[in-house]
Write a protein that binds this DNA or RNA. Structure first.
Lengths: 293, 293
DNA sequence: GCGATTTGTCCTAGAAATAATACAATTGTG
DNA sequence: CACAATTGTATTATTTCTAGGACAAATCGC
């Protein structure tokens, strides 16, 4: 092997590439969910896809296997592969106001599994968000919430130790954290939420029963008390196929003062023995159960 | 076909697996961003990681290469690899209210690239959302918005044809769509937004200058007019490292009527010649520029 | 029925990822 | 300085992914 090095010097620029199979899988998935391939229609044949994308038929086939496993396509030998028509997107329009209340009322229970409960010195960004003194500890918990035994959220919380002492490990397994806090006299006044997206790592993937590289909704919330100090820091991950954040906004005002305003959060359904759900705030939770192999 | 099933029956359970390198990459990334590995601290040595996860050192090495490329770790021969302390997470707390206004005021311009402009029969779910008659066409556009020449959003819109005729291809490249619509007399009254997450496919990945399997924020918005019919359907994808949705909520009410209410959307900064940004509504846009190789 | 097309299955060879090992270069420590 | 530990680099098997082709089975149109 004389000139082995010439091809190597620049290779370190390579990012971590996904397999060709995965690329085609995502491409077709994109085409289907975007509506480019409409439900019921036939996809190009495997040989055709192979030639079009410059790949072998085996690779195309693997990608289609994945789509079939997801229920996005249906394959019929001799006929072709067709886009499935069973609504691929999770929460179809429908009126999903107060969905959470509906679900609990319908007897579909949400279980909470407590994976960790400890007192730790939180990482700097969290300590800063809660305005903790250097070295001050926090009560940290890790929960997974499921509906009908399908996990849909992965919750990591930090509460200043002085406040965290008001509830026990057992409390956390049975009741929402914010409810526990308010019940023990803590007064929340403000909350900051940030919604983003991230990839499922091995740990979150297993906890949420999801593939390792799949997309998750990321929600970070910081709840502040009357003194402006932090009460709770929540870092939540949601399965997008089980959960979506929905909000309604109204166009208000005139002329230069026109603006959008979110529909206010006063409970809309009944007397609201539970005013509204602490983890959803007034945002509506659209939760859909999907078939899963 | 006598025993066609022998080696096959269980193999189809295989999902599309990500490479081992990618798994370790995501695992370590998870550990770092979650604070399990804190900034400045030393990671386990490469041989140690290899043995711990039952992988070869080459694989571990590739994963670390990726993390180093992302700037999450710093490697020092002879010493070890350390967690970088340059805030890995994009919008560090800070007061990012009206960031969008700040950005434009600071002269950091947002460019819009119009990738497509056509009149089509929209896919069924979109047609239904806009309450179009069967076969009714819509004006469809595809735009990519960038800030400082770094793309951060991928916008697909559908507007009923009768309304879409009030603006031209050129209008869309220069002004926000909602502004165009209201300028031509269309009155919006309500909007429904849903936020979720999805993976970047080959097309969106290229448009947003992102790896193919990376996570994106997905926002779907349906704007309704006075007659309750649809005005605009927006399907937007955002780069999470460039954009995050932020909202502030206040705890209101007493006793059984306690609830969370989002801070109302009246413009807060100055006279607001642009009342607020049409694509952010009253939600705050946290946009951060990050280094990128 | 017949032929054309499509998916299902199998096989072989090449390309790429991974494992396993060895050694050099750098750093920190006693 | 000598030594241990760490990252950087290289080499060689082994396994997995991919390309390319062949053929059978199923479906559709004529």
């Amino acid at each position: 092997m004389p000139a082995c090095s010439p091809g190597w010097s620049l290779l370190s620029l390579d990012a971590i590439e996904t397999s060709k199979t995965h690329k085609v899988y995502l491409l077709l998935k994109e085409r289907i969910t975007s509506g480019a391939f409409q439900p019921g229609h036939r996809l190009p044949s495997e040989p055709h896809l192979a030639e079009t994308h410059g790949l072998s038929r085996v690779t195309i086939r693997r990608a289609l296997d994945g789509l079939a496993r997801d229920g996005l396509i249906i394959r019929q030998a001799g006929s072709g592969t067709f886009v499935s028509d069973n609504s691929s997107r999770p929460p179809v329009s429908a009126d999903l106001a107060n969905m959470m209340a509906h679900l609990t009322a319908m007897g579909r229970s949400t279980q909470v599994r407590l994976l960790a409960f400890s007192y730790v010195v939180p990482p700097p960004p969290i300590a800063a968000a809660l305005k903790l003194k250097p070295g001050e500890r926090s009560q940290s918990s890790l929960r997974v919430r499921s509906i009908d035994n399908v996990p849909f959220s992965y919750l990591t919380t930090h509460v200043p130790e002085r406040i965290g002492l008001t509830y026990t490990r057992h409390d956390l397994g049975s009741r929402p954290l914010l409810e526990l806090l308010e019940r023990s006299g803590v007064v929340a006044t403000k909350a900051n939420q940030t919604i983003s997206a991230t990839l499922a790592g091995p740990e979150t993937a297993e906890a949420l029963d999801v593939e390792i590289g799949s997309a998750l909704i990321s929600l970070t919330r910081i709840v502040l008390g009357v003194d402006g100090r932090g009460i709770e820091h929540l870092s939540a991950l949601y399965r997008p196929d089980m959960h979506a954040f929905h909000m309604e906004m109204l166009r208000k005002g005139d002329g230069a003062n026109r603006h959008w305003r979110p529909t206010a959060g006063a409970p809309t359904a009944g007397k609201a023995s539970k005013p509204n759900h602490p983890d959803g705030q007034e945002m509506t939770l659209a939760t859909s159960a999907r078939r899963r192999a």
